[in-house]
C-alpha cells in the first residue's frame, strides 16, 4: 500500500466523513428540551392547586423522574434521545434515564453484583464531578464570598 502518513490519513478521513448537522441537532434539542421543561412547569402549576410552591416544585421534579423512568422501561426514551441529544439528557428526565437504563440492563447479573454495582454506571461520573465542582465553588465562596 502506498504509505499515507497517519496525519494525512486522519485529515483525509475528517474531510471525507459525514458531519452531524449542528443546526438540526440544536433545533431538536431546543424543541424536546423545551417541551420537557414545559411539561415540568405544567406539573408545578397543577400541584400548586393543592400545595405551596416549594412542595409543588419538588413534586414536579419527582413526577418528571417517574415519567422518564417509565418511558425508559417502555423503550421510548432512547428513541427520543437518538435525535434530541442534550435536549433529553440535560433535564432531570435524562438523569432518570441514566439510572433506569443500566438498572434494566444489568438486572440479569443479579441484584447485588449486577444492578447494585452498575446502577450508577452512567450517572456516577455526573454525581462525582458535580459534587467535586460544588466543593470547589463552596471553597471559593468561603474565601471570596465576603467581596460580593
Amino acid at each position: 500500500m502506498k504509505r499515507i502518513s497517519k496525519d494525512n490519513y486522519k485529515s483525509y478521513v475528517f474531510q471525507k466523513m459525514p458531519k452531524s448537522s449542528h443546526f438540526k441537532n440544536m433545533f431538536w434539542a431546543f424543541v424536546v428540551g423545551g417541551t420537557i421543561c414545559t411539561i415540568g412547569q405544567g406539573f408545578i402549576e397543577l400541584y400548586k392547586i393543592w400545595f405551596d410552591v416549594q412542595m409543588a416544585t419538588a413534586l414536579a421534579s419527582a413526577s418528571l423522574v417517574l415519567l422518564a423512568g417509565i418511558l425508559t422501561g417502555l423503550g421510548v426514551y432512547d428513541n427520543i434521545g437518538r435525535f434530541a441529544g442534550a435536549g433529553s439528557t440535560i433535564p432531570i428526565t435524562g438523569f432518570s434515564n441514566a439510572i433506569v437504563s443500566p438498572a434494566l440492563e444489568f438486572r440479569a447479573e443479579g441484584y447485588i453484583y449486577g444492578l447494585g454495582a452498575k446502577l450508577f454506571q452512567v450517572a456516577g461520573p455526573v454525581i462525582v464531578n458535580g459534587v467535586a465542582v460544588s466543593v470547589l465553588v463552596g471553597v471559593l465562596y468561603v474565601i471570596f464570598g465576603g467581596l460580593f
Partner: peptide, 17 residues
C-alpha cells in the same frame, strides 16, 4: 452494545459515522 458502548435504553445522540 452493552459491552462496547452504553446500556440499550440510554438515550444518546448517535453520530452519523
Amino acid at each position: 452494545e452493552r459491552q462496547y458502548r452504553y446500556p440499550l435504553e440510554l438515550g444518546v445522540l448517535r453520530s452519523p459515522v
